[in-house]
Amino acid sequence: MSPDPATTVRRLTSRARARATGFPWAAPTWPDGVERPAPPRDLGVDYDTDWTRRYPARFVRALVLDNVTRPAMHVLATPTVVGAEILDLVEAPAIFVANHTSHVDTPLLLSVLPVRIRHKTVVAAASDHFFDRRWKAHAWTLLLAAIPIERHKVNRRSADLAAQLLVDGWSLVIYPEGGRSIDGWFQELRGGAAYLAVRTGRPVVPVHLDGTYRILPKGGDRLRRNPTHVSFGSPLRAADGEDARRFGARIETALATLADERRTDWWTARRRAGAGATPSPRGPQASAWRRSWAHGPPPDEDHDNDHWAMSRH
């Protein structure tokens, strides 16, 4: 019996997809045992992003952000924004510190920022990932105003650039985890954002992004529509004499509280924070599958699947 046309199409599609995603159709992976050569001097943290803050590039970026990125995010992520009114009180430039689970995080966050901030914001991007090839460096700096940040070690050049831009009036989006989470839970936060805030005296706005992990997780190759929540927390400022380490801990607590708020409500989360009982946003210390399981069912299954609902209680 010959297979039905739908099965044939599915099989052909999956074969084409498998073919299209493997080497040589896709870029080769790098063997673990082989040291990567240093990127050319004008790539990585050495990439010069000045041009992207000039008016022609800003104009193109504004056009794309307002006419392509925002509508696309509206369709793809249908964001529910909580705490946006706080942004009216924020004195720009500010440092937006967010959790990071997906490449969708940046366009989503930029698309919900107020216009006065949105068009004068740079995004800290991993120099080894977004600036390792010339075409990537050009594309990300033009479209997202990305600036290269060395995430594996302290690099004076990238820190100086970010600090200078804050001084020059540019807001900064930074993901203190240093990269996307592989399972949707928080990772350990690094101190770069706190350091910049202490150094420049600019406010830090904690942002919690939820739902983008399901749109495009790390390693994923296909976009899926999924509703998202963007929660802005109250701006934080480093107190006089407060060092970056202690300020960093406050930022982490603020992000954890926003994550708790998403799971409960604002008042419960606040009370738990006050009592020092905020659940860790890093997820259970368990095997990989249990950490994924702990996220619960996808939203569209929430109401249809009683088994899930029962098993979570």
Binding site: P28, T29, P31, D32, G33
Partner: peptide
């Protein structure tokens, strides 16, 4: 080269 899981 020693082949590992990342080797193309």
């Amino acid at each position: 080269l020693e082949v590992d899981r990342s080797t193309p």
